[in-house]
Design a binder for these strands. Sequence first.
DNA 1: GTACTAATTAACTATCTAGTGAGTTATGTC
DNA 2: GACATAACTCACTAGATAGTTAATTAGTAC
Lengths: 225, 225
Amino acid sequence: MTRSETTGATPEKQATKRTRNPEKTRENILRVAMTEFADKGLTGARIDEIAAKTATTKRMLYYYFGDKDGLYRAVLERAYEEIRYEESQLDVDHLEPAEAIRALAELTFDHHEAHPDFIRLVAIENTNRGVNLVQAEGLPETQAPAIRTLDRILQRGQDAGIFRTDTTALDIHMLISSYCVFRVANRYTFKALFDWDLTGAENRPHLRAMIGDVVLAYLQQPGKV
Amino acid sequence: MTRSETTGATPEKQATKRTRNPEKTRENILRVAMTEFADKGLTGARIDEIAAKTATTKRMLYYYFGDKDGLYRAVLERAYEEIRYEESQLDVDHLEPAEAIRALAELTFDHHEAHPDFIRLVAIENTNRGVNLVQAEGLPETQAPAIRTLDRILQRGQDAGIFRTDTTALDIHMLISSYCVFRVANRYTFKALFDWDLTGAENRPHLRAMIGDVVLAYLQQPGKV
DNA sequence: GTACTAATTAACTATCTAGTGAGTTATGTC
DNA sequence: GACATAACTCACTAGATAGTTAATTAGTAC
């Protein structure tokens, strides 16, 4: 069997002929890697397995991302970028302070529930002590808008004399985040210990309302406002 | 150099002669493994490295724990046992309901801060979707006392008409846990994003007081009690 | 002191895994 | 249409890694 025979006998080769598309290839790798890293962790994910799930070859992962850590860092940065974009959509400045706080809490609640892979990547990166995240440029600035939004609400509430003044936007952000992150991140051990599914549909309405109640009760605590 | 010469020339061989101590060997392996797994995760930890840090050999890990997963499960169970023992020490039934809640919140706060390795193991096991923890026998029972304690406090407060009644011990436990766990577990990414050290000494008093305030404000929210 | 077994040691291996070497092809440029 | 180069393919490798084989020794029971 000669080379020309093979080529001539396989017209489908033309249909699947090599076409170039760097953006698509890079994006394809990144998406697959994000799923794999979120699923198995940095040390648990396998380059060969990631490669097998892409439309390209392993060599391309190294071509575009250098090494496993480089790919992981690219995944982390992309994950934070996507979250930032989604969060920039929220607009609560037209609401009364109390209702704005509740809306923010519930948005965070919904958001974290909708992005369990992001929560997993964050947990994985904390297990890794954040060494890869600190290398990402300009991350603090991406989070600043969310804090400023919260700060404006607090300020309005404090000016109106209905919110306590001995707290900050970071305090409240941390309080809301901890609740919403824990519910998604720790659901497995919580279920194992207490046989209670934090992400179960039957518990959702109650847990969703509760975080708003908690934050508002704290901000409007008698004797503090 | 003959064999007898070597033996005769090394009297210290007698000092380090093999002595048997199964409990000590097992315990030694378990402690080293706990540190390593908490540090690097299940997939990140290396059996050879764990073995090298023990006073025994790799073969002994397999002798006592079967395989890597078996060792990891033993570590998890031991970690929860230790935590349970510490938590069983707390006694808040003599305090007024509000003060009992505050004491419980601050105990949890201090406890999690004092056991970052435990928090790490929990995060790792959640990354692992809890598959190893569910195999641990009798875990729910070990957590029951803590929930019952909290339930008694709530009941007393509700009977006295000072606590809201539309919440449960599990709700409050989850609220306190999420705050205290997040502070330790997510400090790295939080620091990277907001340049604020959740476990820094300068923030500790404020954050420690805040969780008690939050829970009490919620439990005593006007219009709900 | 002999026999037995649990505890321990040392050397070994199959497989996995991240990473590469070296060449090939598509595509834009002149 | 020759040239340059970015994008891509394929086969390969060094070293790491979990797990094993098999022999040896310290206690223990009789």
